[in-house]
């Protein structure tokens, strides 16, 4: 979903930000692990370092220069590092270094990380969706994540993540938006909310409004705006 040139620039930019936010020891550890991950046939180094990473990087909030934030926004509209921690970006960047020459191996390695991930790992994995190779292959993974009821995991898919708007079918997109309202998420942070508004979503949201009103519950103002656009 991001062309090769832009992906290269983002990769470089992320590396620079990580180096600025990690101690030199932690960066040396990460760089060494990346070299091993690039050459290993199996998954031992990947699995160990992906889990171990926060112990080395710490979990402080990222400090990012305003000009870097602006450049990122130009390279990948809708995406932002706002609210990210150092380990989250380092994990995403680590995944970006994984060789993709053998498609089946690449998919298998990353999908295996999903199956045993804890919460912060899931946040990083779903945050990485826009940067993974074989964009179409992650649709069902993304749909699975939308079913999560873990707040931070759902937010990693919803907030400043351009993957869903780019890749999801209309039905899956609508399901995600409905769930965002249902779980009282801040929908203003969902990229593509207005551009992907559609008639089916308007119908569903309309039903949802009726249901809320019948139950004497309040209705989010943004729902009415989306219904209006989708009509």
């Amino acid at each position: 979903m991001v062309d090769i040139e832009k992906k290269k620039n983002l990769d470089k930019l992320f590396q620079q930000i990580i180096q600025q936010n990690l101690s030199s020891d932690a960066w040396a550890w990460l760089a060494d692990k990346v070299e091993r991950i690039k050459t290993e046939e199996k998954t031992l180094q990947l699995n160990l370092s992906f889990a171990q990473l926060p112990r080395m990087s710490g979990k402080n909030n990222l400090i990012v220069q305003p000009e870097d934030l602006a450049e990122i926004a130009t390279l990948l509209p809708g995406f932002s590092l706002q609210g990210w921690t150092a380990d989250r970006l380092a994990r995403v960047w680590l995944l970006m270094q994984l060789p993709d020459v053998d498609k089946m191996v690449y998919l298998k390695k990353i999908k295996n990380l999903f199956t045993v991930a804890e919460m912060n790992e899931l946040v990083a994995l779903y945050s990485a969706l826009p940067f993974l190779h074989y964009t179409e292959e992650w649709i069902s993974t993304c749909e699975e994540g939308i079913r999560s009821n873990i707040g931070t995991v759902l937010e990693a898919i919803l907030y400043h993540n351009p993957y869903p708007a780019h890749a999801l079918s209309e039905a899956a997109w609508n399901q995600m938006v409905l769930k965002a309202f249902f779980n009282e998420k801040d929908v203003s942070q969902i990229p593509g909310l207005k551009t992907r508004a559609n008639q089916a979503l308007a119908h569903t949201l309309n039903d949802y409004v009726q249901e809320r009103l019948a139950a004497h519950r309040t209705v989010h103002q943004e729902i009415y705006r989306l219904i209006e656009i989708g009509k």
Binding site: T115, V116, A117, E118, M119, L122, N149, I150, G151, T152
Partner: peptide, 14 residues
Amino acid sequence: FKDYYSSLIGWERF
């Protein structure tokens, strides 16, 4: 077992 361990570090922790 895998799902159980995952739930201990995932859903239950949340």
